[in-house]
């Protein structure tokens, strides 16, 4: 189901950019997204070290998750925005793909700068890590389907539109239901999740969403795209980053970073976050 959702959102974004053409806003949004993805992990890292009382390696791994993005949170947010008559620009899908990987690189840098070098070693080959970081499944699928949509345009998309449009919301509902079950199970099994880390897993999306909404409004994006940027900034990865961290920082606790991003931040964003970031974006874009 996640493959379907990623392909659908990529195709639709590409088709929209094909219709609207390339605008300077695309470059501005891409730069804003890249900046967020590089800077968010740094703030998160120091908060996790001080308030969260995590060691440097675990703090780096968790911080990378919060700098990267969640595709399903974005897809749900995009549907919410469309339903409320403020759909985000199609190019935000490209911004989503761009924001997947820089946080991984920043997280690894933080781990090598502040981590205890005597504690375990990753033994990973650089090529393997680069492959996992830059060519992981979600990045390839999103970018690939975006490019296909961009080349195909509205006419080329029409024959396959019933598959990717008609069933989209139903599939999204089923996927969210499945995600809810996975999140609940992870929460039940969470051993290393402390109250302080739970608080951070809620504070991070709120603060990052506010930064994203402010930045989007500051660089002049429309309200829908500003909200989408805020949603991206607020979301935390649970697909691309965990796999890369498992390879590069095996000594980090995967139960911890997956539980924080998937079992706390993800449901928080779906239930409370998306309407809040949309409200912020609307307010900031008008102001």
């Amino acid at each position: 189901m996640s493959l379907y959702l990623m392909a659908a959102i990529g195709l639709k974004g590409g088709v929209e950019v094909n219709s609207a053409g390339f605008t300077p806003d695309l470059i501005v949004a891409a730069l804003a997204g890249l900046a967020l993805s590089c800077l968010i992990p740094i703030g998160a890292f120091f908060a996790l070290r001080s308030f969260g009382r995590l060691d440097a390696v675990n703090a780096s791994a968790v911080a990378a998750h919060y700098g990267s993005v969640s595709v399903v949170t974005f897809v749900t947010g995009a549907e919410f925005l469309t339903t409320n008559g403020m759909g985000a620009a199609g190019y935000m899908v490209a911004v989503l793909a761009l924001m997947e990987t820089p946080a991984i690189i920043v997280g690894l840098f933080l781990a090598s700068r502040y981590g205890d070098k005597s504690k375990g070693s990753a033994h990973q080959t650089r090529g393997e890590l680069l492959h996992e970081t830059l060519l992981n499944g979600s990045v390839v699928l999103l970018t690939g389907s975006f490019l296909i949509g961009l080349i195909a345009g509205k006419d080329g998309f029409a024959p396959i539109a019933p598959v990717f449009e008609t069933g989209f919301r139903g599939i999204l509902c089923l996927f969210l239901l499945d995600m809810g079950l996975v999140a609940a199970r992870r929460l039940r099994e969470a051993k290393s999740l402390t109250l302080r880390l739970t608080v951070l897993a809620i504070i991070f999306p709120v603060v990052n969403g506010m930064i994203g909404a402010s930045l989007g409004a500051l660089v002049g994006l429309d309200a829908g795209s500003t909200a989408a940027l805020a949603i991206l900034a607020a979301s935390a990865s649970y697909i691309a980053v965990p796999a890369a961290m498992r390879l590069a920082l095996p000594q980090a606790d995967s139960g911890l970073y997956l539980t924080m991003s998937l079992a706390v931040t993800f449901p928080f964003n779906i239930i409370f976050g998306i309407p809040f970031y949309t409200y912020l974006a609307t307010t900031f874009a008008q102001g």
Binding site: S2, N136, G137, S138, D178, M179, V182, R185, R186, Y238, I239, A240, P242, A243, M245, R246, S254, G255, L258, L262
Partner: peptide, 11 residues
Amino acid sequence: WYDDRVTGGAG
């Protein structure tokens, strides 16, 4: 651990 099919294989 569980095969939850959503976490990119990390778990």
